[in-house]
């Protein structure tokens, strides 16, 4: 069993809601990424998504765009991202690590070679934001060949037919985009979200994670009946903004502890 499947099995056995934490690799710098991943896990994250920066992040809101731009200015490449995963594994990180990015950098690297190098580095899953299932064939084949889960995104606008196809062919988990929109923290979740998540659950045996707009403990609580995990990204990047370099790890750890219900809002 892969790390992702094992992670969700453990969550189910403990009856716990999974926390998936997102970081853009190289924001604010590569060394910080290497220190922040263990801090997120110490705070209660169960799985970490590492963003591969791309020059044209058209599904991302202002926060991730800014982090992406800063990472690119420091010369972060897909190869850097693979090295970061390799280094994290050397340092003993055992949690599932998923790379998330856009298709062109993977294509430029070479789909087959990327899957091979990612697997060797210790990557468990891959999310490609602008690669709908109809176009995913070559990437899916390469991921399967190297034991990586290609995690699909589904949206409230995804039809039942496509949900059924994606839900039966994918592996790892299903990433449900909570809103029609780009990434970014939001105050309230859309009221029709439970209906959407029910539609997804009826069409897949895989664990369901919800992302886009999630930033508060109340969001996590409200999704407990409908999902196995939440994905939190922009809110973590916002934690880093304005933090002194020596405060960063403590800040993100404390934030995840609040999300995970390990400490109250006021203590953060």
């Amino acid at each position: 069993m892969g790390r992702i499947a094992a992670c969700f099995r453990d969550l189910r056995e403990r009856g716990e809601m999974g926390i998936i934490a997102y970081l853009t690799v190289g924001y604010p710098d590569v060394d910080s990424t290497l220190r922040l991943v263990p801090a997120l896990l110490a705070g209660g994250a169960h799985l970490v998504e590492l963003g591969i920066p791309f020059s044209d992040p058209l599904a991302d809101g202002a926060t991730v765009q800014r982090a992406t731009q800063a990472a690119l200015e420091q010369g972060v490449t897909p190869a850097t991202c693979l090295q970061v995963v390799g280094t994290l594994r050397e340092r003993g990180v055992e949690a599932p690590l998923v790379l998330m990015g856009y298709f062109n950098p993977v294509l430029a690297y070479g789909v087959e070679r990327f899957a091979a190098d990612a697997a060797a580095a210790g990557v468990d899953g891959l999310i490609v934001v602008d690669l709908p299932w109809e176009e995913a064939g070559p990437v899916l084949a390469a991921c399967r060949a190297y034991g990586i889960d290609l995690v699909p995104l589904v949206a409230p606008t995804t039809s039942d037919e496509r949900l059924a196809r994606i839900g039966s062919e994918a592996s790892g988990f299903i990433y449900c985009v909570s809103v029609t929109g780009v990434t970014g923290a939001r105050e309230e979740l859309p009221p029709d979200l439970p209906d959407f998540l029910r539609r997804v659950r009826e069409r897949t045996a895989l664990p369901v994670a919800v992302g886009f707009g999630i930033s508060k403990r109340k969001h996590v609580e409200s999704l407990r009946p409908w999902a196995e995990a939440v994905v939190v990204g922009s809110a973590i990047i916002q934690c880093l903004d304005g933090a002194r370099p020596d405060e960063r790890e403590e800040r993100v750890k404390a934030y995840v502890e609040v999300l995970a219900g390990r400490r109250g809002q006021d203590e953060a």
């Binding site: 934001v129 949206a155 606008t157 995804t158 985009v177």
Partner: peptide, 11 residues
Amino acid sequence: GRYVPETLMAA
């Protein structure tokens, strides 16, 4: 082809 975020596929 059609390399877009999933949200746009239906549209």
